[in-house]
Amino acid sequence: MSRNVLAVIVIVAALILQVTVANRLLLPGSVIPDLVLLAVVALALVNGSLLGLVTGFFAGLATDIVPPSDHTIGRYALVYCLIGYVCGLAAPEMDRSPVLPFVAVAAGALAGSVLYALVGSMLGDPRARWPVVSHVVPLQAFYDVVASPFVVWAVLRLTTRAERQRNPAGLDPVPGFYRAR
């Protein structure tokens, strides 16, 4: 399985899980972790910035048009594309410490929520007013960090399995938590 196919599968799975399960859960504070953003960040950290930004753009576009969405098309595409690129830039550093990937995911998730709210308020979206945003963004970043180990773990597991299938002779070719191009 190539990386591209893998990325498509991960994004579609995250998107469907997000709209059918996660968004309907009753979490305290009624804020939900953004699984698609987490998947984009994780894929970018594994695959580097080029694949990261392309993944981000198409994941965002899919989020923009998935049925219950009701905002200006292109907002998520813009935000996820930027986040994918920036997180991809950090990909080579990921081998240094086992904690680093999770810090990067947390930073990426926070930046993503803030950026989305910012684009919304620039477009005059009534949903992105300050009282709502100031309540939602910190909570959402917190939930993202809580949910990130699971998403990162799933993405890693899929990637290493794909790598192992490609060269079945050797041991796991990925030395650290992440392997960057």
């Binding site: 997000q18 968004n23 309907r24 219950p68 969405s69 989305y116 919304g120 949903r127």
Partner: peptide, 14 residues
């Protein structure tokens, strides 16, 4: 029946 709910700041369902 409600089958999915909106993302982020919007309150929508399908």
């Amino acid at each position: 029946q409600v089958i999915s709910a909106g993302e982020g700041l919007e309150d929508t369902v399908s």
